[in-house]
Design a protein around this nucleic acid. Sequence first.
DNA 1: TATTGTTATACTCTATAACTATA
DNA 2: TATAGTTATAGAGTATAACAATA
Lengths: 153, 153
Amino acid sequence: MEAAAAPKPRSAPRTGAAALATELRIALMRATRRLRAEKADTDLSDGQLSVIALLEREGPKTPREIAAYERVQPPSMTRTLTALLDLGLVTRTEHPDDRRQVLIAVTGSGAATVRETRRRRDAWLTRRLAALTPEERDVLARATQILRRIADS
Amino acid sequence: MEAAAAPKPRSAPRTGAAALATELRIALMRATRRLRAEKADTDLSDGQLSVIALLEREGPKTPREIAAYERVQPPSMTRTLTALLDLGLVTRTEHPDDRRQVLIAVTGSGAATVRETRRRRDAWLTRRLAALTPEERDVLARATQILRRIADS
DNA sequence: TATTGTTATACTCTATAACTATA
DNA sequence: TATAGTTATAGAGTATAACAATA
């Protein structure tokens, strides 16, 4: 970090929750972004990876369900699923009850990619954590529990 | 579900840094996902807001410095800066020593936008943080600094 | 008529390569 | 030659609107 002098020394800075929210949000976004860069040796995008991870975790779903979970519109999911189908990472079968719908399921190859990516991300983060002091790791461990509660609220 | 078991020497499977890595990774991803869902209504993109927030925080910088900080390529930053210039949120002046370079600085309007957008955009997280104890907020504040270092490594 | 999924089309963000102007 | 910034161009991801098939 270079020594860049702030133009306006904040005399009475925002304190408490509001100030922390900004800093924490940026840190979370940035750390997650860096973590996402660690993935299996594939050309899969975040969205594609997220989809097969969801299917590997929860089983087959319809495109609309997947789109809702991923918070994108159905046409966007169509595009993502087409790419995954071409890569052989998911399959597309008729819905047994409703012929308008289709069921998307992860393949063995897709599931393997998911597991490999998890392994790499854990490995990357483990290396970083190992370089910290025990006190710092303790801070992160406690922060983990707090973040979990916040995310579930 | 367990983390992907690596065939590597993981003699101490779920202790110390490795165990924390898995839990922290999940917590980070989940919290970030939840945070993105609460994205406030602003005309500025994530990248644009991040740039003026950086300039408001650390003072004028060259496009290349900003690009490096934001981890994008210079042409991408040119586009972002052009948009911010058109919006009157930043200024563009000659570098005093090197005429190849330019200095980008946030305007009063830009700084006001940063503060206002922070307030609205962080509302969700601020409410969650306000519900924590001071000790818990302190943990998150310290975790923020650690996460920043990790993300930059 | 309503719903599921897709296609058509456009916009945003990012990237690489090439160009200019300075050093 | 090397560096800073920009322009030209392309690719990926997302969105809305319109369409086909089915309920």
